[in-house]
Nucleic acid binder design. Structure first.
Lengths: 214, 214
DNA sequence: GTCTATACACTGATAGAC
DNA sequence: GTCTATCAGTGTATAGAC
């Protein structure tokens, strides 16, 4: 344990505390839902007094809104691998890998997102109508281009995307069920590798793309 | 408006009121989550005074428990089509159809189930460990048999099941997102038919099963 | 079996000393 | 920027008249 060379600036204190709070909030909202997560509980998880949460985030809803927005950003960035790919095997394969990795590393975020959408997106409806819609249309166009170029079968691009989202996010959102069916044991590296390979194999084969992934 | 030929027996009154309450509860729990759904709100949806709910279901949790149990039954019954099928095209095709139909007809139930599992199954953990586990093992054995008989490719049966669950339930759990991406319009008969056909085509092709479904 | 009134606990949010 | 004390509002659940 070393002494800090200099005291943190107010800006740094704010950043650090916001990070602590957001981390605790994401975990707590995921586990208990918006209604079940109390400010007291989030404060306990963050290791701060409840009043401090209200200092950084005036209302519970503003805190929740920030959590959902952050998740949405991570989620959108996963699609960067999609762009600039030569074809579906590379592009969709990398996208599946990226989304499976998010399910593994940020399961809480995925659950908060799922819960928000299930409850008719009370705080991010505008994102669905603008950003997500544009993103979806763009990726559908890419898939359609691959189809036109004969690089994959003529499947419905929209429902292919939905299948990718559903399947990859399932490993986060229903992680508890999967763990229970795994004898109560969390997934090992090998389990995740098997899951990834299975998902990629079935979907890529399903759209007429040969692949040699082990 | 006709007069009832005879007054309802107490048993019939109980059945009818329980049905009203359970219907309202499923809808409300799905839309607002366990914490967000208040007994007052459920009572309003059911058209009954709040105190009556406590007469039929002593606590909020007992009402919720009953809702989840009922959903689980519907969900398990959908798998009847699985058994007695000659091969994967018939068995899995019918299973996908059945699960898509449940997503269409009982989206609220699917959401309550998803929410329950996401929150680590506080009330149906025992079902996951017993009934669901046995069900899953049984169906995995059927799939493995089809593989051994050369009727489909050698994919991992467990992950194939997860993909079926994820993909079909996605159309209920994320129905709001799908509707938003559909221009705010609910899915028509044609939309559902297209979704079903897409899901069946990709998955059945993905496991090496030819199919001629339109 | 129905329903009004109410008890009791808890939650989100704030005031104000430090 | 931190934290204790506290308020106003809401939620679950029940008592008791009908």
């Amino acid at each position: 344990m070393r002494a800090n060379p200099r005291p943190l600036s107010k800006r740094e204190i704010r950043q650090e505390n916001e990070r602590l709070i957001l981390e605790a909030a994401e975990k707590t909202f995921a586990e208990a839902g918006f209604g079940g997560a109390t400010m007291q509980l989030i404060a306990d998880v963050a290791g701060l007094p409840k009043a401090n949460l209200h200092y950084y985030f005036p209302t519970k809803e503003s805190l929740y809104r920030r959590v959902v927005q952050d998740i949405f950003q991570v989620w959108l960035q996963a699609a960067d691998v999609f762009d600039g790919a030569d074809g579906p095997e590379e592009g969709l394969g990398a996208y599946i890998d990226a989304k499976m990795e998010i399910s593994r590393r940020h399961p809480a975020g995925s659950k908060v997102w799922a819960s928000e959408v299930m409850h008719r997106a009370p705080v991010i409806q505008d994102y669905l109508e603008t950003t997500l819609k544009e993103w979806t249309n763009g990726r559908m166009a890419v898939i359609q281009r691959w189809i036109d170029e004969g690089k994959m079968d003529a499947v419905n691009p929209r429902h292919l995307l939905y299948m990718l989202w559903a399947t990859t996010q399932h490993y986060a959102d229903f992680g508890h069920q999967i763990e229970t069916l795994n004898g109560g044991e969390p997934y090992s590296d090998a389990d995740w590798a098997e899951a990834k390979a299975s998902v990629k194999h079935i979907i890529l084969t399903g759209i007429g793309v040969g692949q040699d992934n082990a």
